[in-house]
C-alpha cells in the first residue's frame, strides 16, 4: 500500500481537504475579523489623543470608536511634498507597506480630530526598534508644536524592557506638553538615556535596559515627523494669515 501512487493520492486528497476547509473557515470569519482589525487600529489612533476624549479608550465600546471616527475625525493622505491627495482616506494607508517604498513615493496618513472648535493633528510614524519594527501615533495641538499625546506599539521588543514603550503608560505620557520646534526650527523629541532634565522641552526619559529601542523611538520621531513638515508649515502659514481660524 505504500507505493508512490498511494502516497501521492493520499497527499493530494489531504491537501485538497485541508485547503477547502481552511478557505471556508476564513471566508466565514472574514467580515468580523476585518472589522476587529479595523477597530483595533482605530483604538491605537485614539489612544494618542486619550487626554482629549471623555472616556478611556479601553472602556469604549466598538460602536463608540466607530462613532468618533465618523463624527469628529477628518482623514487626509499627504504626499511627501505636503500636497493632500484626493479620493483616499488615511485608514487605507498601511505604514508597513509605505516604509518599503522609496522615500519620495511614500504617502502619509494624517488624522485630524475636530472637537470643541480645536483641531488635533495625529501623525503616524514608523521605525526600527531593537528586534523588529516599532510604530506610533503622535498627536499635535492646534499650534502644531505642542504634543498632545503619543502612543507606541511594537512587533517584538523585549517584555519588561523595550516593550515598555507600549506597556508602560508612563513612557508615552511624558510626551504630552513637549514641543517639537525650538525657535521655529524643527528639533523633534529626543529620548535621553539617564533621564532628561525636567525643564527640557524637547526630550523625555529613556528606559533603563532598552537603549536601542529608545534610540529607535527618537530616530523614528525625528524622521517621521519631519516627513510631515511641508504640510505642517503650509498649515502654519495659512493660520498666520487667518488668525481667526485658530
Amino acid at each position: 500500500m505504500n507505493n508512490n501512487r498511494y502516497v501521492l493520492t493520499f497527499i493530494l486528497i489531504m491537501t485538497a481537504t485541508v485547503a477547502v476547509l481552511l478557505t471556508g473557515l476564513r471566508e466565514a470569519t472574514k467580515a468580523r475579523a476585518d472589522r476587529n482589525e479595523d477597530i483595533f487600529n482605530k483604538r491605537a489612533i485614539l489612544s494618542a489623543i486619550a487626554t482629549k476624549l471623555d472616556e478611556p479608550v479601553k472602556s469604549m465600546t466598538d460602536d463608540q470608536v466607530v462613532q468618533i471616527f465618523q463624527d469628529d475625525m477628518e482623514q487626509l493622505v499627504l504626499d511627501m511634498e505636503g500636497n493632500v491627495l484626493e479620493d483616499i482616506a488615511a485608514e487605507e494607508i498601511d505604514m508597513a507597506v509605505e516604509r518599503k517604498k522609496p522615500e519620495s513615493n511614500r504617502k502619509l496618513p494624517l488624522y485630524i480630530y475636530k472637537a470643541n472648535g480645536n483641531n488635533t493633528y495625529i501623525l503616524s510614524v514608523r521605525g526600527n526598534g531593537l528586534w523588529d519594527e516599532i510604530w506610533g501615533n503622535i498627536a499635535l495641538e492646534s499650534d502644531l508644536n505642542t504634543i498632545a499625546g503619543a502612543a507606541f506599539d511594537h512587533k517584538g521588543e523585549t517584555p519588561g524592557l523595550g516593550a515598555e514603550i507600549k506597556d508602560n503608560p508612563k513612557f508615552s505620557q511624558q510626551f504630552s506638553g513637549k514641543k517639537i520646534y525650538a525657535n521655529s526650527e524643527f528639533v523633534s523629541i529626543d529620548v535621553v538615556k539617564g533621564g532628561a532634565k525636567a525643564d527640557n522641552q524637547h526630550a523625555v526619559d529613556g528606559i533603563s535596559g532598552a537603549t536601542v529601542t529608545a534610540d529607535g523611538v527618537a530616530e523614528m520621531l525625528y524622521r517621521g515627523i519631519k516627513y510631515y513638515e511641508p504640510y505642517l508649515s503650509q498649515l502654519q502659514q495659512s493660520s498666520m494669515v487667518l488668525p481667526a481660524e485658530q
Binding site: V18, L22, L25, T29, R32, A33, N36, E37, F40
Partner: peptide, 17 residues
Amino acid sequence: ATLVTVVELTLKYLNYP
C-alpha cells in the same frame, strides 16, 4: 498546522487584541 490555523482564525474572529 491546519488546527493551528483554525485557532488563529477563531482568535481573530473572537478576540483580536
